[in-house]
């Protein structure tokens, strides 16, 4: 299976600029998806292809920052390159804080644009990888039974079997059995490894109330995005 060519999602309410940038990107070998508003992007099915978003800052309807926020809430891992016709410092600071990959101003030269896109695609790959890893770890953790999960939460916080048995009002033997089962299910050989998984999944910062330890409820972008050409 070959990796599909990346898709650049261009969100800009200026049709002329949208078309021009699409021509440039296509000539540079990218696939391009065009959206005339943030809402249009959100309404479409999420993309599974690698890519990034070229986002205009000032648009009628949702503006760039608002769209960035909505995408973050949707756990999108598509890096965002802002492209604005007139950028001011507060907006750009806000954009970067919100995780923007880059902040470009129109008119933008091909070199600058492509470089930013390359960086964004690299970032995408990074995120994708991390996202995939966490996905697999999460799958493994989710295979634990509720009782095992409770034991796991306490183990990674460095509790001894005795303490765990006391906390869970069970015997040390039962705790030991759970630990073995956990190590097997998580495919780790040491407690250190188990702690590392818990850290990657952000469980260590979660409250320590036993079996109900929260799992991050994000999900990877849904599958099956079509690349739509601008209209």
């Amino acid at each position: 299976m070959t990796t599909p060519s990346p898709v650049i999602h261009v969100v800009d309410d200026d049709r002329s600029f949208r078309t021009a940038i699409a021509r440039l990107l296509e000539a540079s070998g990218y696939r391009v998806a065009l959206y005339e508003s943030g809402d249009q992007l959100l309404q479409g099915p999420p993309s599974i292809d690698p890519g990034c978003i070229l986002l205009d800052m000032r648009m009628s309807g949702l503006n760039g920052l608002e769209l960035q926020e909505r995408l973050a809430r949707l756990d999108s891992i598509l890096p965002i390159v802002f492209l604005t016709a007139h950028g001011d410092i507060p907006t750009s600071v806000q954009a970067i804080r919100g995780g923007a990959e880059d902040f470009l101003t129109k008119p933008v030269t091909k070199a600058t644009l492509l470089q930013a896109i390359e960086h964004a695609l690299a970032r995408y790959a990074q995120r994708r990888e991390r996202h995939d890893l966490i996905g697999s770890l999460r799958a493994r953790v989710s295979a634990l039974t509720p009782r095992e999960s409770a034991v796991f939460a306490l183990v990674v916080r460095g509790k001894l079997n005795k303490q765990i048995a006391h906390d869970l009002r069970t015997s040390e033997r039962t705790v030991k059995a759970h630990r073995q089962s956990i190590m097997k299910k998580l495919n780790v050989r040491s407690v250190a490894e188990a702690v590392s998984i818990a850290a990657k999944l952000g469980m260590l910062s979660a409250p320590v109330d036993g079996a109900d330890a929260k799992m991050p409820d994000g999900h990877p972008p849904a599958e099956g995005v079509d690349s739509t050409k601008g209209q």
Partner: peptide
């Protein structure tokens, strides 16, 4: 003003 200028530059480079 930058909107058409940006479009012109990108079009030209394309």
């Amino acid at each position: 003003l930058n909107q058409p200028l940006g479009a012109i530059l990108s079009n030209a480079e394309a």
